[in-house]
Design a protein around this nucleic acid. Structure first.
Length: 429
RNA sequence: GGAGGGUUGGCUGAGCGGUUGAAAGCACCGGUCUUGAAAACCGGCAUGGGUUCACGCCCAUCCAGGGUUCGAAUCCCUGACCCUCCGCCA
């Protein structure tokens, strides 16, 4: 949520910034509603003030034993006028609020211009692309040949966009999770958290998935209005909702592994092959809550934390700055990490690291006490995948494949693999 | 599933329907004292909104939403969440 004061006082400037990301702010409508609200609010408050003072006068008169009938007479029609004013004000505020909740974050000045993925800007590359003296296969072929990745059976159990892993490949998947958590807790200073995988609507509003993107979510039927989490960002960031954090505890750094559930509505026909785009996938997510003045520096650090995972796994990648038009709803700036997939001969997104500034914090009233002022102030939130586990598995399979179709286990994962060094060798079966 | 109890400021915790936006304690900030610190003492200290050049003034907020009333933290209804006991259970 943007600062309502800013929205009120300089709507044109904000509209210009939002236009960069392709969002058209109806300034005329907003200023009209605001003017109306203001006038109505003043009027309502005057009536309330009148009610309060007359009620007080009646109380005092009664205490002195005076006759209160004339006073009661005087306020007889106040109530109806006040009720009407309050009702209209409430409607108006609701209307304004629903508009404001639907306005995306303003892109940071360093975010490149552009309207789509095509305009994203490559920042840096790491690693050498693997060279094969055979035609590299993609993870679907590799997995099928191994007999350890089975989309048909997953479709039987549930439907499309689910996967079934087995044997050493399933273990490799788990090993990646352990490795990532150990790395972020052990070397990057994050606190491991275990969180609910079902969340309420308020939490989704806090991080920005609602009210606009309900169609991307799986919603439970039944007694409770609960949703499956689309990312750990939702439960982890909402730890701070309605909280005031002591300055001494900052920065707060959380890491969590969770499954993520996405309906992928509107992505029909896109990435239908393999594990790239699934309704259910595992992700290790880093979340930070920091002092406002630190957030831009922290975004760079957090991105580096995600990069470290790829570096340790020896997976070549590039870092891309999303252009304004490609930014997510709540983000002020985002770096995507794209890993090299030999099977597709392409870089594919494997992590997304964003600074949300105070956008999420304002929605969820996540604050910290600034020792300078002694006042509670909005903190800044950031998060990044560290990493998407399914896609990392894909990347490992494709980059570490052998001509035989076997998969060599990356060095850093050996300790998690119970002695398996090559998946698909006789020894692993 | 059954029966009770609860939700008040950063925290703990009082609160007869009428100067209660809210006692008290803790925490925090400032001051006195002290060589310094602690202790003691004095003072300050909720959030959001409106208005003012400013001092200030006004409005809202005691889980949420309705209701009763001239007036609600306080009474009534509904809901959410938490706790205790019983039952069931990984």
């Amino acid at each position: 949520m943007l600062d309502p004061k800013l929205l009120r006082n300089q709507p044109e400037q904000i509209a210009a910034q939002l236009r960069r990301r392709g969002f058209e702010l109806d300034v005329e409508q907003l200023t009209r509603l605001e003017a109306e609200r203001k006038q109505l609010q003043i009027q309502t408050q005057q009536l309330q003030s009148e009610r309060n003072s007359s009620a007080k006068a009646i109380g005092q008169a009664k205490a002195k034993g005076e006759d209160i009938q004339p006073l009661l007479q005087a306020v007889s029609d106040l109530k109806s006028r006040l009720d009407a004013a309050e009702a209209r004000l409430g409607e108006l505020q609701e209307e304004i609020n629903s508009i404001v909740m639907g306005i995306p974050n303003v892109p940071h000045e360093t975010v490149p211009d552009g309207t789509s993925e095509e305009d994203n800007v490559e920042i840096r590359r790491w690693g050498n692309l693997p060279e094969f003296d055979f035609e590299p296969r993609d993870h679907v072929d590799l997995g099928a040949a191994l007999g350890q990745m089975d989309f048909e059976t997953a479709a039987k159990i549930t439907g499309s966009r689910f996967s079934l892993l087995s044997g050493p490949l399933a273990r490799l998947h788990r090993a990646l999770i352990q490795f990532m958590l150990d790395l972020h807790t052990g070397e990057h200073g994050y606190t491991e958290t275990y969180v609910p995988y079902l969340v309420n609507a308020e939490s989704l509003r806090g991080t920005g998935q609602l009210p606009k993107f309900g169609q991307d979510l799986f919603k439970l039927e039944g007694e409770h209005e609960y949703y499956l989490i689309p990312t750990a960002e939702v439960p982890v960031t909402n730890i701070l909702r309605n909280d005031i954090v002591d300055a001494g505890q900052m920065p707060l750094k959380y890491v969590a592994h969770t499954p993520c559930f996405r309906s992928e509505a509107g992505s029909y026909g896109k990435d239908t092959r393999g594990m790239i785009r699934q309704h259910q996938f595992e992700k290790v997510e880093m979340v930070q809550a920091v002092r406002p003045e630190e957030s831009w520096q922290v975004l760079e650090q957090l991105t580096n934390h995600a990069e470290t995972v790829l570096q340790k796994l020896g997976l070549p990648y590039r870092v891309v700055a999303l252009c304004a038009g490609d930014l997510g709803f709540s983000a002020a700036k985002t770096y995507d990490l794209e890993v090299w997939l030999p099977g597709q001969q392409k870089y594919r997104e494997i992590s997304s690291c964003s600074n949300f500034g105070e956008f999420q914090a304002r929605r969820m009233k996540a604050r910290w006490r600034d020792p300078e002022t002694g006042k509670p102030e909005l903190l800044h939130t950031l998060n990044g995948s560290g990493l998407a586990v399914g896609r990392t598995l894909v990347a490992v399979m494709e980059n570490y494949q052998q001509e035989s179709g076997a998969i060599r286990v990356p060095e850093v994962l050996l300790g998690y693999m119970g002695g398996v060094e090559v998946i698909g060798s006789k020894a692993s079966l």
